Simulated assay, not measured.
Amino acid sequence: MQSVYEAAGGSEGLLRLAAAWHNRVMADEVVSHAFSHGFHPQHTERLAAYWAEALGGPATYSDTYGDETSVVRMHSGNGVHDEMDRRAIACVDDALRDGPQR
């Protein structure tokens, strides 16, 4: 049986999805605020590695960048931001609908 990671195109597919999501987020006037202070130059690669691991792929994220606790710590303490969350999820939906970008 194929894993979700494999069905998503493996590391390459998830890297394309993360790049499409990041481009959409940066173009969104609400969600882009989360990146107004800047972001790590490898944010897209890190995000793709995180998603890959969460979907049954290799543990590259945990082995290289940290565990789930470090992700939660990095993204916490900013208060409630329901609208930003909703729009970030919409960016994922839109990026998925874009289809594979090669």
Rank of each mutant, 00 (worst) to 15 (best):
V71H: 10
D98Q: 06
H37V: 04
D98S: 12
L55V: 00
G57I: 05
V72K: 15
A7R: 13
M74E: 11
D82G: 08
V92A: 06
I89M: 12
L15A: 06
L55S: 12
F39K: 06
A95T: 01
Y50L: 14
V92H: 06
D98E: 13
R86G: 02
A7F: 06
S36E: 15
A52R: 00
Y65T: 02
R24H: 14
G66T: 10
H75L: 11
V31G: 00
R86F: 08
G38E: 09
E12Y: 05
M74L: 13
M1T: 05
G66N: 10
Q2F: 07
E45S: 08
I89C: 08
D85M: 11
S70A: 10
A18K: 02
N78Y: 14
R87P: 07
P100V: 04
L96E: 00
G56M: 12
T69F: 15
R97N: 09
Y65F: 15
D85C: 09
G66W: 11
L15T: 12
A20R: 01
A8P: 08
H33T: 06
V25I: 15
Y50F: 15
A49D: 07
H40T: 00
D85R: 12
D85V: 13
Y65G: 00
Q2R: 05
G13D: 04
L17V: 10
H75Q: 09
V80L: 10
H40D: 15
Q101P: 00
A48N: 08
S32F: 11
N23Y: 09
G77F: 13
A48G: 06
L17P: 03
Q42R: 03
L47R: 00
V4H: 13
R24A: 14
G56Y: 14
V31E: 03
M26C: 13
L17F: 11
H75D: 09
A18D: 04
E83G: 04
S76F: 07
Y61L: 08
G99P: 03
E12G: 01
G57N: 00
R97A: 14
P41A: 10
A59R: 11
T60P: 05
V25S: 06
Q101Y: 04
T44L: 04
A19D: 15
A95Q: 07
C91R: 02
V71E: 02
F35V: 08
T60S: 14
L14M: 03
A20Y: 05
Q101I: 11
D93Y: 12
L55M: 13
T64H: 09
T69W: 14
V30M: 07
V4Y: 14
L15P: 00
V80N: 03
H43E: 03
V80K: 07
H81Y: 10
Y65N: 01
T64R: 13
D67Q: 13
S70C: 00
G56I: 03
A49C: 05
S32M: 11
P100M: 04
M1W: 11
S62Q: 09
D63L: 11
V92R: 02
V71C: 10
E53R: 07
T69N: 15
R46N: 07
R73A: 15
A52E: 01
D85F: 13
H22Q: 11
V71T: 09
P100I: 03
E6V: 09
H81I: 06
R46H: 14
A19M: 10
R87W: 12
D82S: 13
H40R: 06
F35C: 03
G10E: 05
H43G: 02
E45I: 02
L55Q: 07
